[in-house]
Structure formats: structure tokens, C-alpha cells
């Protein structure tokens, strides 16, 4: 890290090519990341005959037909709507229950607090494959199979612990004196929490919401197992492209591109907290 700011003449002379080396490394790495995504985008703008007929690095006959197919066919776009509904439900539920809990963990010692905190973590780490079948039976038996709320609740399994851990990480950074001053000033817990404390950790809430949204959005196994028609997520809808006449590559690619959009739209706002969010608020 010293090379860019090196002060002594001797190191500066040597550091010049090194700075270039850095740029080369980063360019190569970013290229490696972008190539497969570019290829997906490239394919989504081609017709199937072009995809299968000839090999080209960019679309020869640019077409948006694949996107039109998705945005006009109800079976397709309802996949996105369904996913959005359960993802938003899940984010709201997760944050609503995680906020007070994270406050308790960050401020108080209470009976069994450490065990509880650890137990939450184990749920974040639990393999969805273990839960797929029991969830199916649980939600079928209470009549919630193929509803949005079933998927939203199932995703709470890993999103609630995630939200608690992230929020706790942000809350511990807020000095305790603020709480005490507010109580002395006559604020009750509820009013203090909403009026004073929540604005203080607004960025933490944003980050937690982003990660709940994201992990619910990217998950497929549970959402596919718990739905059949009415709440079918886009991820499961994508299997529709495999038909009797082979795979409809263009539409498949277009559907894939559209699933990347929501994440790509908001990533800029949380860029500095990505590491913190993935590390459960611990960086």
C-alpha cells in the first residue's frame, strides 16, 4: 500500500511501474467478473436463430423481442411480481422483529443472552436443503402452501438472524450516554427508540434492509419448494424456457438479465457497507 504514497525518491522511482501493475490486476479481475454477465446480456439481445446459428461477440441483428416476451406475458412478469411481494414482506417482518432484539443485545445483559445470540447465528448458517421438506409439510398443514407469506416466513429463518447481527453491529457504535440522556429528559422507550435512536442508526437499518432484500431475492430452493402457481418466484419461472423444442436461450438470458437489475440499481448506495453486511455487521 505504500507505493502510491511513497515519499523517498528511491522508492518513488521504483513505484511507477508498480502503480500500473495494480491497474492491470484490477482490470483483469473486473474483466473476469464482467465477461460472463456481458455474455448473458449479449445473448438476451439476439434471436434464437442467431444464438444457435452463428457465433458472434456482439448481436448482429439487435432485437428486444426477448424482453418484450417477458414483459407482456403474464406467466413471466408475474414471476417478478411474486418475488417482489414476498421479498418485501420478508424484509419488513425481519426488520420489525430484529430492531428491538438488536437493541436488547447491544445494550443489556440478560439471562441466556449469549446462547440466544449464538442460536440465531446457527440459523443463518443452516443449510436450506435440511429445511426444504419440513417447511413444505409445515406450511401445507397450516394451509399456507403456495402463498407469499409462506415464503416470506421461511426466509425469516436466515434473514432475521442476519438482521439482528447486522443491526447489533451498528448499534454498539452508538454511545450509551445518548440513551441515558433521553431517559432523563423524560422520553419513554418507544418514543426514544423511534424519534432518537432509529435516525441515529439509519444507515444500519438501510444496510440490514438491503441484505434482507438481497438474500431473499437470490434464494431459490425454499421459494421453489413452497410454491406451485400463485406465488411462483421468477427463479422457478425461468425453468419454463426448457420446452419440447429445446431451450429458449434468448428469453432465458433476458429473464436472467432482468433479475440482476434490482440489485444493480441500489448497490451504489450501500457500496461502503457491503463488507460489513456480509460479515454480519462485524467488520
Amino acid at each position: 500500500m505504500t507505493d502510491a504514497t511513497a515519499l523517498t525518491p528511491a522508492t518513488r522511482a521504483r513505484s511507477l511501474p508498480k502503480v500500473k501493475g495494480r491497474a492491470v490486476v484490477m482490470t483483469l479481475y473486473l474483466l473476469f467478473l464482467m465477461l460472463p454477465i456481458y455474455w448473458l446480456l449479449n445473448m438476451s439481445l439476439k434471436t434464437n436463430t442467431e444464438i444457435l446459428g452463428s457465433f458472434s461477440l456482439w448481436p448482429q441483428n439487435l432485437t428486444f423481442e426477448n424482453y418484450v416476451t417477458i414483459l407482456t406475458d403474464e406467466a413471466w412478469y408475474m414471476g417478478y411480481v411474486n418475488s417482489m411481494i414476498y421479498v418485501v414482506m420478508n424484509t419488513v417482518i425481519s426488520l420489525a422483529v430484529a430492531l428491538p432484539a438488536a437493541y436488547a443485545f447491544s445494550r443489556y445483559n440478560f439471562l441466556g443472552d449469549k446462547h440466544l445470540f449464538f442460536w440465531l447465528l446457527t440459523n443463518r448458517m443452516a443449510p436450506p436443503a435440511v429445511f426444504a421438506l419440513p417447511f413444505f409439510q409445515l406450511y401445507s398443514s397450516i394451509g399456507l402452501f403456495d402463498t407469499h407469506i409462506a415464503v416470506a416466513l421461511a426466509h425469516c429463518l436466515f434473514n432475521v438472524p442476519l438482521a439482528v447481527w447486522i443491526l447489533e453491529g451498528f448499534m454498539r457504535g452508538v454511545p450509551k450516554e445518548i440513551d441515558e440522556t433521553a431517559y432523563i429528559d423524560g422520553y419513554g422507550f418507544g418514543r426514544f427508540f423511534v424519534k432518537i435512536f432509529m435516525p441515529l442508526i439509519a444507515s444500519g437499518i438501510g444496510v440490514a434492509a438491503f441484505f434482507c432484500f438481497m438474500f431473499s431475492w437470490v434464494e431459490l430452493l425454499l421459494s421453489r419448494t413452497l410454491t406451485s402457481v400463485d406465488a411462483k418466484p421468477i427463479a422457478a419461472t425461468m425453468t419454463r424456457t426448457v420446452g419440447a423444442a429445446g431451450v429458449d436461450w434468448g428469453v432465458l438470458a433476458a429473464a436472467g438479465v432482468l433479475t440482476i437489475v434490482p440489485g444493480a440499481l441500489v448497490i451504489y448506495f450501500v457500496r461502503n457497507y457491503i463488507a460489513k453486511g456480509f460479515a454480519l455487521g462485524r467488520v
Binding site: 467478473l33 454477465i37 427463479a235 433479475t259 440489485g263 444493480a264 457500496r271
Partner: peptide, 8 residues
């Protein structure tokens, strides 16, 4: 770099 992390 975050982009691949957000893809379903």
C-alpha cells in the same frame, strides 16, 4: 465487484 454477489 459487488455485482456477482447480488445475482440470484
Amino acid at each position: 465487484m459487488s455485482l456477482p454477489l447480488l445475482i440470484p
